[in-house]
Amino acid sequence: MSKIHVSTTVNGDATEYLCEPTSSLLDVLRDTMGLTGSKEGCGSGDCGACTVVLDGEMVCSCLVLAAEAEGRTVATIEGVAEGSVLHPVQQKFLEHAALQCGFCTPGFIVAAKALLDRNPNPTETEVRYWLAGNLCRCTGYDKIVRAVLDAAAELRQERTPA
C-alpha cells in the first residue's frame, strides 16, 4: 500500500509528511517529525500520555490516524511554552513538584492547559474529572491538582486589569 501525503499545521508551523495508512498521529509526531514530547504509554487511549489538541479538541494522538490530520491544526507539548517562556501550567508543575519521573507530564500539561482554556476557574473536582484520562503512577495526583488550581489562579489574575 502506498503512503499518504498529508498537509497539516503543527504548533503553528505548516507541515507536510508521508505516512502509512495505518500510522497513528502519535507515530508520525514521534518518529517522522521528531516531536517525542508526546509519549506512548499504552497505544489504546487509556493513559493520556500522548494527549494533543486537534482543532481545539483534546485527543489521544494514539487514537487518531496520521492521515486524519490533513488540513487541521495540531498542538503538542512542544508548543505550550512561548519560546523559552514557560506557560503558567508548566511553571506551576515545577514549583509544586508535580512530577516525579516526568513521563506522563507532557500529557497532563496539554490536558490541563486545554481545561483552563475553556474553564478558567475550575473546582478541585472539575480538575480531577478533567484529568481522569491521564494516568500518573508516581504522584498520587495531589501535587498535580494543586499545580493546576494554582496555574488557574495565576491566569485569572493576569486577566484582571491592574
Partner: peptide, 20 residues
C-alpha cells in the same frame, strides 16, 4: 524546596526517555 534541575526539560517535552 527548589525547582529540580531537570524540570524544564520535563515540562516542555524535551527530556529523552527510553522510547524516544
Amino acid at each position: 524546596r527548589p525547582v529540580r534541575p531537570d524540570g524544564v526539560d520535563k515540562v516542555t517535552g524535551k527530556a529523552l526517555y527510553s522510547p524516544d
